[in-house]
Amino acid sequence: MSVRRDGGAVRKAFSAPLASVFVIAVTVLWTVPTLGLLVTSLRPKRDVTADGWWNALLHPDLGLDNYHTVLFEGGSGVSTGLMPFLVNSLAISVPATLFPLALAAMAAYALAWVRFRGSDTLFFLVFALQVVPLQMALIPLLQLFSGGAHLGSLTLLPALDLKGTYAPVWLAHTMFALPLAIFLLHNFIAQLPRDLMEAAVVDGASHFKIFRSIVLPLCTPALASFAIFQFLWVWNDLLVALTFAGGTPEVAPMTVRLAQLSGSFGGRWELLTAGAFLSIVIPLAVFFALQRYFVRGLLAGSVKG
């Protein structure tokens, strides 16, 4: 009962006319810089250097030249446009989202519902791994990929010849994502009603059957919300891609290209706004496609109900 009353009160407060005006004002204010970026990306370079973007609203002289240059010329004669990098970004982001999702869902289920000695300790250790900054692992991981792991003369892991492929980026992103993913999904999965699991066991379901038929469908919102987080993180990542993939058009994602777009002396800075807008198109699409899970998933694992 109390939940209903509180929810109602909050809802009422937010739908009051004054609150609506306030929210709309904040939204508009919040969007102005983005609008400025959009307008700037459509203006020619000489206008941008001459006056502020709002002048374009009075004397519109807009064109898609910047976008054309970014997409098809890449800012200079010889280089390719943005397209190969867009494809690379997708080829990096999609697997780097699916891998940790798949592994973390299974690990979270096992940690939450399979009783074995030390499962709590293991969960705590995984959880604690979150405090390790990604940057600390860059060089050791690179060494592992390029030289393998050795203990004296014993080879634990052979040198994987991964240079110039997406695999190191996928692996790195997967590793860095797992602790948080396992933690989030564990909390969600652990709250599923015990009765469901018991009923399934009584019916003779194996762990894999329970995981596939009960747990996965029920934790879709959590999976989706983590998928959004992870996708956006990987899509916007520059450091990991730069370190593990390098900057060649064969493997480099869009962020790497964007960072180089303006040239050594920054001569083509007018292209950055257009490039930035192109790079947010796909994350926006992902966000809108999955957004109904987003708010639900934000609370996933955090609220006892």
Binding site: P133, Q135, A259
Partner: peptide, 11 residues
């Protein structure tokens, strides 16, 4: 790099 990732290690 300021896209998504934090600063490089001091090390």
């Amino acid at each position: 790099p300021s896209f998504g990732s934090a600063r490089l290690p001091v090390a």
